[in-house]
């Protein structure tokens, strides 16, 4: 009854035998051991578990691992390259875009995808683009500032 699932995560191929009901979030966290992807609500409201599946932002708590079989996933651990933070990670640090840090990986994955889709996103568009990401600490103000900084950094 278990399925063999192969998912490339941050460039590394992982093959595991999993129950068909195994969530992608659980595959990433429990089977592969990459715990940067946090689970905050189980119902795809909060976005803490956001990862990129084949380049698209996806809430990994609401996708089955078998659905992601054969795909290429990027998690927060795969964002920094060659010891250099991704522009969105750097902006979160620079703008104090995080406090407890729990929603942060999902926020960074969502914003990096949003800015890829809409490189000139306005402040208003950024706020609406964060509809699916909940932060309880920051009041969003510095998250929006971080997104704006990243927008500038990525357009250069």
């Amino acid at each position: 009854m278990n399925h063999t699932v192969t998912i490339t995560i941050n460039g590394v191929k992982h093959t595991r035998e999993v129950e068909p009901r195994t969530l992608l979030a659980s595959f990433i966290r429990d089977h592969v051991g990459l715990t940067g992807t946090n689970v905050g609500c189980d119902t795809s409201q909060c976005g803490a578990c956001t990862v990129h599946v084949d380049g698209q932002a996806v809430k990994s708590c609401t996708v089955l691992a078998v659905q992601a079989d054969g795909s290429s996933v990027t998690t927060i651990e795969g964002m920094a390259q060659g010891g250099k933070l991704h522009a969105v990670q750097q902006a979160f640090w620079d703008q104090h875009g995080l406090q407890c840090g729990y929603c942060t990986p999902g926020m960074i994955m969502s914003i990096s995808y949003m800015l890829k889709q809409n490189p000139n996103a306005s402040e208003e568009e950024i706020r609406h683009g964060l509809e699916g990401n909940i932060c309880r600490c920051t009041g969003y103000q510095n998250i929006v500032k971080a997104a704006l900084q990243a927008r500038e950094a990525l357009s250069n």
Binding site: L34, I76, E77, L85, L98, Y102
Partner: peptide, 15 residues
Amino acid sequence: KRKEDPRFVQGKGSY
């Protein structure tokens, strides 16, 4: 800037 942030923005928080 916060000393704790590099670990959080890289998904290395120890929850």
